[in-house]
Design a protein around this nucleic acid. Structure first.
Ligand code: MN
Ligand code: MN
Ligand code: MN
Ligand code: MN
Lengths: 220, 220
DNA sequence: ATACATTTTTAGACTAACTTAAAAAAATAT
DNA sequence: ATATTTTTTTAAGTTAGTCTAAAAATGTAT
């Protein structure tokens, strides 16, 4: 009993939603995430339940079973390792790799992921700063906060993004706010919740509320 | 109008059959190659024809249009480049890569193939000695003959295989008849059409008719 | 407690890709 | 030239995944 491309994408969506919301994934949440109708979700959810990949009770939302969670985690592992490959080896930029990895994550092969992992030097984070689960599905948890949560004069280093859109990633490239860049909060403006920050110890810049709420930093 | 995974595999099959047989691919030939029923082929062939990928006339077999041939060639390019990646970079052996490349060839991305090609150093042949078409679909044609076509005392170097099965590839590994190995025909036995050859200038070995008819060499 | 709004499910229908069985066309043999 | 065999197509049906529209269940507000 193997799992289709489509089923795999649903599992990942359910994993993502449950993690974000801390509760069972609703039909509507899944349909939004997957860009399908609610009716399609109900349909798929029955099939995933038959395959023991999720727990499903009518009108009550769904949660992943252990098998479902393993599958989802393994997919995330593959997705993020392929992203590292595309950026580190093929020199794609971080805003170009998601769509390709979305396809590559579905490649089925016994040894491929492990060999890829070794080839890449067992990276712990992907190009967007997201942790790469190990072969057993364990994530490294990093102590990180949103840039918007920094206090005046606090320092941090950019370690990840919450928003993965091309628009945001390209904006960050433009601002030279790539992963690893040190930032220090100089001033907070109550008016529009924007912040004046010192980037890389050398350049001052005002960043909007939206930007600050989508950038993860590790306090120094 | 984009082409599905399945349609792509049919195009490759049609390309392969036409090349091998030098005539339009019959419904039965395609169904054998694709492991589907003849009825499924008729069905698919209509769709491919609607998409202007093949020329199809009932009961007359099919040939690729220019668009169809371009698509097939591009797929072969991707398949073989991925095989090189798997062997050269991830250290898979040549009998393990076909199935994985069969999936990887369907990844859709604007720049991926070209970057992969560059990353691999623009290889001209895949791990089985098959030529890799360039971005315009042009193959390098190599002057090669079957080992069985060598005359007594003639020398050659192993450059490819006709049979791509795991069984044959592993047999060749066992015999140390990998690509690049020099072979010299010492003796031909009429009785069973087997041959005694000198491998790598140092070891004599009798090879069966079947082996000799599936191994390509370049005369020296 | 009832009415209204929202969410979810069901019903019915579509497409791509597949199947088997029967019919039709083409190829081969007598 | 006719009969037989082989190949191909058509017909009818299945499954995965999708949709819209309607019905049912759940949640919220007065
Ligand atoms: Mn995906
Ligand atoms: Mn990522
Ligand atoms: Mn394929
Ligand atoms: Mn090959």
């Amino acid at each position: 009993m193997d799992i289709s491309h489509t089923e795999e994408n649903y599992l990942k969506a359910i994993f993502k939603i449950s993690e974000r919301d801390g509760k069972p994934a609703s039909t509507n949440a899944i349909s939004t995430e997957m860009n399908t109708s609610a009716a399609s979700v109900t349909d798929m959810v029955k099939r995933l339940s038959d395959k023991a990949l999720i727990h499903y009770e009518r009108y009550r939302g769904v949660t992943l079973t252990e098998l479902g969670e393993e599958t989802a985690t393994h997919l995330i592992r593959k997705h993020r390792l392929w992203e590292v490959f595309l950026v580190d080896k093929l020199h794609f930029s971080w805003d170009e790799v998601h769509e390709i990895a979305e396809q590559l994550e579905h490649i089925k092969s016994a040894g491929l992921v492990e060999r890829l992992d070794e080839y890449l030097g067992f990276p712990k984070f992907d190009p967007h700063g997201d942790p790469i689960p190990d072969a057993d599905g364990n994530f490294v948890i990093r102590k990180q906060v949103l840039l918007s949560e920094l206090k005046r004069e606090e320092q941090g280093v950019v370690v990840g993004v919450q928003d993965h859109t091309t628009a945001f990633l390209q904006y960050l490239d433009r601002m030279e706010l790539v992963l690893g860049t040190p930032v220090k909060l100089l001033e907070y403006f109550d008016y529009d919740e924007s912040m004046r920050v010192l980037i890389n110890g050398e350049r001052e810049q005002v960043l909007s509320k939206k930007v600050c709420q989508n950038l993860f930093v590790q306090k120094q």
